[in-house]
Design a protein around this nucleic acid. Structure first.
Lengths: 124, 124
DNA sequence: TGAGATTACGGGGAACGTAATTATC
DNA sequence: GATAATTACGTTCCCCGTAATCTCA
């Protein structure tokens, strides 16, 4: 089973139609269908009934949904915590060196560092 | 974030080395490194410290591990239930039809059905 | 006729593995 | 010298999107 496919599953379960789910995730209709089929095959059971008015969960699908929702919850919590813990340095970095060393060795390092920590300003 | 990458993360966290984790999952060393980097970039933080004796979790990594483990647990439960709910028909299927219809139309259908439900034996 | 699912098909790129490089013991 | 990470590189193949088809209102 592909864990990523559970997001697809969730979207379809919520939207009820491949098109809507596709739009929500930023994917296309066929892709949604494919990923769903892949999941169903991996699990060896049908998750949705294709009815006239959209996709409606089967009993097994409903059971899966419960798990998938808990997984999503954990994933979101994980991301929240990650972005929350993200921290940026902020201040001035001053350093000196001989001319040639500064230009040849330090410049690229400082440039790279600047990308990582844009709040830090280098001063000469 | 790619949910599937969490399995990679778990494997590395448990094995402590890319090689071992790769072996366990059936992947190669570079792949593990790549997936891990992808995850770290998606989360915007470093999950492991590359030390002399393998990969050791950072504080943030430890926090992520807790979530990842719960996710894995849910995923496993989901799969258990799916395979548990898998049900096989079992018995004899007897049907009759005119000769030409049986050979032309029914045969392929029965063959396909037989693959799905091997416990069911067709009888003429 | 319109919305949606499914199938067909072709192309692009992502991701993988092999191999080379570096580092550490 | 061996083990392991990382980088480089070439290639495959898989997955995706477009388009066509089919079905049901």
């Amino acid at each position: 089973m592909e864990w990523s496919d559970l997001r697809i599953f969730l979207a379809i379960a919520r939207e009820g139609t491949l098109g809507a789910a596709a739009r929500k995730i930023g994917q296309t209709q066929p892709t949604m269908g494919r990923r769903l089929r892949a999941l169903e095959e991996a699990l060896g059971q049908t998750l949705f009934q294709r009815t006239v008015d959209g996709f409606v969960l089967t009993d097994e699908g409903t059971a899966v949904l419960a798990h998938a929702e808990r997984i999503e919850e954990e994933a979101l919590a994980l991301q929240r915590q990650a972005t929350g813990a993200e921290m940026q340095l902020d201040g001035t970095l001053r350093l000196s060196s001989s001319d040639w060393f500064g230009t040849v060795m330090l410049s690229p390092v400082i440039a790279a560092f600047g990308k990582l920590q844009p709040k830090v300003v280098a001063s000469s």
